[in-house]
Nucleic acid binder design. Structure first.
Lengths: 265, 265
DNA sequence: ACCATCTCCGTATGCCGTAAAGTGATCCTG
DNA sequence: CAGGATCACTTTACGGCATACGGAGATGGT
């Protein structure tokens, strides 16, 4: 199930998002006191790194406050001084994982190539951090790094001089295409790793069961049968398959985007 | 976080999927015995209906075996006679929610209109059953109803005489577009309902915070700022916005799909 | 030296999925 | 019709989760 972001105290989260990596002053005029009590032994960044390492390695299901605390040599409750709740932690992780995103994409080879490069980068990031796809996309986190992802795409599309009414649909379609393809690929990969059966094994086993239970499958679903049969047996690697699907879809979409006329129905 | 399907005993799940609603004989030649012990008081269908009602009303997070049992007047453990585990239950729910899908779409108004109708149907279904989007799409459930969704789309695309190398990317792009748009819309809707603040309120509050924390936002992210400013204040309804994004993306994709040449980069 | 204030931790509560074992109804066999 | 096998269902329990709460001890300002 998807984790919905942006639930906790928005001011706190936003402050963490925008201050964490900025070279701004220590704390704004919060209080003139100089803070008694013991020094903090951790940093938000250390917590984020630990949490991301866990999510990368073991998946979002295994990401628990206990696990993060354990990895840092303390308890789960110790984290709550730094982060208001697990939800906020995930929001921060999300933005943190989009750090070091390029500010702009070179347009020397034309807008198509630039969009493709942007999509490749995003695809790569999702493959490296599959848990990103389990963070809800509605009500975006609105952190600086995530914003850069959008801004860099908009820079490319702006340079391509898109008609303004195509800008919004293009952005959301591109995002959905990349996210969807990456989601399918990473989930298939994860399933293969978790169950120990490759995608190919899984499919053959499934088809065997199917032909037993629904012998009329080929008659009821002729097109699906044809489509399944047309796949070369070699490319059962879900990642490769996903990338192919993404590139193919991107091609179609870009054809439509940069077609001069924009044929009406 | 997303629920991964297809984990339990595949044979059992597939049997449940394909036999449940078929008029086939009672049980195949399992045993000539006539089964001692008490009669079963429930049916898989009743369980599915109850589970779907819960997921529709309260979301996937609130779907628990205890909740389903309670709704049916029994305990959580009583369900395990009918369904091997919660995972299988979700798989069955998924297929069940795609029942009554049209076998084919009329092509009288051309393939574009047919694809649009298919997408509209899927969009509507996702809005009615938002939890569908939280069931993993890799390693699909392979139930009869889900299969019909694919088959009906393939029927349309086949009639449109697509070049075969465009078929696969088109299918996956269409699916990802609809799923992505619906996911954004339903999540925004759910967030609004859960927090009590409308999308509009949320955005204005967020922007206020942002301009406080990052006064240079407009300089750092000029294109994003322009894009945000270009939205008419009226259409802050996330569902409407999502549908617009879907229709716009669909238009671009279909332009690319049915463009004769298929411009290369 | 005092004490307000802060970090950190131990414990507890109420969820979850489901394993295990018990309870009683139902049918087939004598 | 008695006895036992077999099944649906219940009770209880376990380990794991996020996090509320309150205590312990360190720290710095006065």
């Amino acid at each position: 199930m998807t984790l919905y972001g942006g639930q906790g105290d928005p001011a706190r989260t936003m402050a963490l998002l925008w201050r964490a990596h900025s070279p701004a002053g220590p704390d704004a005029p919060r209080a003139s006191r100089a803070a008694p009590g013991p020094k903090q032994g951790l940093t938000v960044d250390a917590i984020l790194d630990a949490a991301i390492a866990i999510a990368d390695a073991d998946g979002m299901d295994r990401l628990s406050m206990r696990a993060v605390g354990e990895r840092l040599g303390t308890s789960a409750m110790a984290l709550y001084t730094y982060v208001p709740s697990k939800r906020e932690l995930v929001d921060l992780m999300y933005d943190h994982a989009h750090a070091d995103w390029p500010q702009r994409y070179p347009l020397d080879s034309g807008p198509r190539a630039a969009v493709q490069a942007w999509a490749d980068d995003l695809w790569g990031r999702y493959l490296r951090h599959p848990w990103l796809l389990q963070v809800s996309y509605a009500r975006p986190v609105l952190g600086p790094h995530e914003q850069t992802v959008l801004e860099s795409l908009l820079g490319v599309l702006h340079a391509a001089e898109l008609p303004p009414d195509r800008l919004r649909p293009a952005v959301s379609a591109l995002l959905h295409l990349v996210r969807g393809a990456a989601q399918t690929a990473t989930e298939a990969r994860a399933a293969a790793a978790a169950t120990g059966t490759s995608d190919q094994q899984w499919w053959t086993e499934r088809s065997a069961l199917l032909s037993g239970l629904a012998p009329d499958f080929a008659q009821r679903f002729p097109r699906s049968t044809a489509l399944a049969g047309s796949s070369s047996t070699a490319d059962y690697d879900p990642v490769r398959q996903g990338k192919d699907a993404l590139d193919g879809g991107l091609r179609l979409l870009l054809d439509g985007l940069f077609a001069d006329g924009g044929a009406a129905a």
